[in-house]
Design a protein around this nucleic acid. Structure first.
Length: 669
RNA sequence: GCGCCCGUAGCUCAGUUGGAUAGAGCAGCGGCCUUCUAAGCCGCGGGUCGCAGGUUCGAGUCCUGCCGGGCGUGCCA
């Protein structure tokens, strides 16, 4: 289905053919969480295998590839995996020795048991509930099994000591070497740390924002944008190939009402009954008038509709009243691969085509002069839905069905829609329609988030595009930028704010509080931590001290605990991607920041990482300074920094290299 | 009425396929800067996890009912 697109905004990459190039052109280099091919892994082998090499060689290559994969797998095994393996093999020994009763090794079959981090540090580095889990099957009390396990684990290479606790938990302390190896893992992975190999997962299309192009980006749609974009980043991190898509409703009543409001504004009239009255409407009217007076003065209404949509998306150059949907989203760090025009579905005849298919399947019924989609029997939503109004116009639902059919036809394994809770009734409708068309209904996944309540000084604020009292993401970001004295601070703060809670919880956004307390945003705490790490590394370099060497001097309990926490990162990220819950990454990085800052400040003067000026002032200080220990600690710091930066990148927040002293607190008593 | 989501500290929220004494930020109180960045750190106070049953070795987490809040249930999108 080739298309000739007449909307000017379409040139920005409406269709898949151009979208990649145009989007990479538009994306600043900062797209660190993007889908670059990293960790090529066994790619060279694959290439050779595909060639016409002789059979013997191919067999050898196959073995080599498998060996490489095995090694890769081992490398990707987390600390928990290693310990789990050690526990399992200890249990195997016990079974052979008859310590697990008649069930023997079978006691483990089908049992769900965990090796996990206990909440309290006194309970060890890791703990397992396996004795509790298999006690019934083994026919022995949990504590007896636990005691046997403690004996069997003694003297291993991973576990340093083990003890029975409570009803039968086994608490484990690990050898420092294990944590030191964790640091090496992070540094080896570098910018691939926490990521699955690229393009190994599904082809995913994620549609989000898709707000009507009749107003600027509001704080409410900001939540959609930030959530959708962060989930998209996480999916890429998890190895999926992701297309980000915005469905532009550039047709229908709302666009018409909007265009008529613009025309009214240009003539100094009140907007029509269902029209729009924000300041941006007048701004757009003035801009269009200057651009081409015939547009407004009795020109073709469709051309005017189109022009309005175009400039809403693009924005009036230099205007803060009408910055444009696309630039506003870019300021939020949100970019799309595809901007899909609803109107184009009509121009290509996709809507009647898909309706014919529904009709052939007997899924349409005519009532009161309108055409309805018949809900299938027993479906979750059992009401019939209008697809063609009695006026003869297609309803939005008709083009939506065509749109979904189109997306499925493009061969995605999964279609995700990020929707506000006020649209959740829509989900069943789409599912029913896809089922009726015999399309892959199960590939459709709705990601719902609860609504944002805008308040001002504690009072509910009814914001509506039509009334024109909307709160835009731009004004919020501008305010915070100004308060923090740094461009981009508002973006980071807004993203962090929305990502600091699960999509399932309602958010109250107090516009006054957001501006006044913007510097309390935890994002700055995390960023400050990153800047501190960078600063240490900078200072080290100036002194000629380098990260690396043997990690054995790394024995401080806090340092090892943080190293262990770094090891949690890939699992946190994988879980966040699987559940589409970016807030997990945000909470993780906040914890990491807390751990590091606490350690760092408490360290104080007692055992500084870098030599003080009083030390470096003496010539030849290097001879008395513990350089190997510093090297190990710097490696540890670099590993933390990498984890910070990766985590922040995955939720679209910048990781600044330096943050200068905070702006003076203006308030005086 | 029916469907989906939520109810955890004064406020805003986390809480991994059910695990040990339920956590964090903000707010409050008390301490720590001749600085490897105080946008920081340490400490204190603060809880019938909406209520009532049930499931089990064990429930904030799973099931049922009730109470309270949000959203949906348009020939609006």
């Amino acid at each position: 289905m080739a298309c000739a697109i007449s909307e000017p905004w379409a040139r920005w990459g409406c269709w898949r053919g151009w979208s990649r190039r145009s989007s990479s052109f538009l994306r600043p280099a900062a797209r660190s969480a993007g889908g670059a091919n990293r960790r090529a892994g066994d790619a060279p082998c694959r290439v050779l295998l595909a060639s016409l090499a002789p059979l013997g060689l191919r067999c050898r290559l196959l073995r080599l590839r498998n060996a490489l994969r095995q090694r890769q797998k081992e490398r990707e095994m987390s600390l928990v995996d290693h310990v789990r393996e050690a526990v399992a093999s200890a249990l195997g020994e016990m079974a052979r020795a008859g310590e697990l009763g008649d069930a023997g090794a079978g006691a483990l079959d089908g049992a769900t048991w965990l090796v996990e981090r206990p909440k309290r540090a006194e309970h060890g580095d890791l703990a397992t509930n396996v004795a509790l889990a298999i006690a019934k099957r083994a026919g022995k009390p949990p504590r007896a099994i636990a005691e046997g396990l403690v004996r069997a684990l003694a003297g291993g290479t991973v576990v340093a000591s083990a003890e029975v606790a409570g009803p039968g938990f086994v608490n484990l302390r690990l050898r420092p070497r294990v944590f030191q190896a964790q640091i090496a893992d992070v540094l080896r992975a570098g910018s691939a740390w926490g990521r699955a190999p690229a393009a190994t997962g599904e082809r995913v299309n994620i549609e989000f924002v898709s707000a009507n192009p009749t107003g600027p980006v509001t704080v409410a749609s900001g939540r959609n944008a930030i959530l959708g974009d962060s989930v998209a980043r996480l999916l890429e991190v998890a190895g999926h190939r992701v297309t980000r898509e915005y469905y532009v409703n550039d047709r229908g009543n709302q666009v018409r009402a909007f265009a008529q409001s613009v025309r009214a504004a240009s003539e100094g009239r009140e907007p029509p009954e269902d029209g729009y009255r924000g300041a941006y409407v007048a701004e757009l009217a003035a801009w269009l008038k200057a651009l081409d007076p015939t547009l407004l003065a009795g020109g073709d209404p469709e051309t005017l509709d189109r022009a309005c949509v175009t400039w809403m998306l693009r924005g009036v150059p230099g205007s803060r009243t009408l910055p444009g949907i696309r630039p506003s989203l870019a300021d939020l760090g949100v970019y799309f691969d595809v901007w899909f025009s609803e109107d184009s579905l009509y121009r290509w005849g996709a809507v009647p085509a898909v309706m014919r298919r529904l009709e052939d399947g007997g899924h349409l019924v005519e009532k009161d002069g309108a055409l309805f989609f018949k809900a299938p029997d027993g479906a979750l939503e059992d009401k019939d839905r209008v697809v063609r109004k009695s006026s003869g116009e297609w309803a939005y639902f008709a083009s939506d069905i065509a749109y979904f059919a189109d997306k499925i036809g493009r061969g995605y394994d999964r279609l995700i829609n990020v929707l506000g809770a006020d649209h959740h009734g829509y989900v069943a409708r789409v599912r029913n329609a896809l089922t009726a068309l015999g399309l892959h209904e199960e590939r459709f996944e709705a990601l719902l988030y609860q609504l944002v309540f805008i308040t001002k000084g504690g009072e509910a604020l009814k914001s509506s595009k039509r009334a024109g009292n909307i709160i835009t993401v731009d004004e919020v970001m501008d305010e915070i930028d100004e308060a923090a004295g740094r461009k981009g601070a508002g973006r980071d703060a807004l993203r962090f704010f929305f990502l600091s809670r699960s999509a399932n919880s309602n958010v109250e956004f107090d516009i006054e509080l957001a501006k006044k307390k913007s510097l309390d945003n935890p994002v700055f705490y995390v960023q400050y931590g990153h800047a501190r790490l960078c600063s240490i590394l900078r200072n080290a370099e100036a002194l000629g001290l380098r990260a690396g060497g043997d990690l054995e001097p790394l024995v401080h309990p806090d340092e090892l605990a943080i190293a262990q926490k770094l090891g949690d990162f890939p699992a946190v990220v994988a879980e966040a991607a699987r559940l589409r819950e970016p807030h997990r990454v945000v909470f993780y990085v906040q914890e990491l920041a807390r751990d590091f800052q606490s350690y760092y400040t408490r360290l104080g003067d007692t055992d500084p990482i870098l030599p003080r000026k009083s030390v470096t002032a003496r010539p030849g200080w290097e001879a008395s300074w513990n350089v190997p220990k510093t090297g190990a600690r710097l490696a540890w710091i670099e590993a933390i920094r990498v984890t910070y930066a990766e985590a922040l990148g995955m939720v679209g927040v910048t990781a600044p290299q330096r943050m200068d002293r905070p702006p003076e607190e203006a308030d005086e008593a």
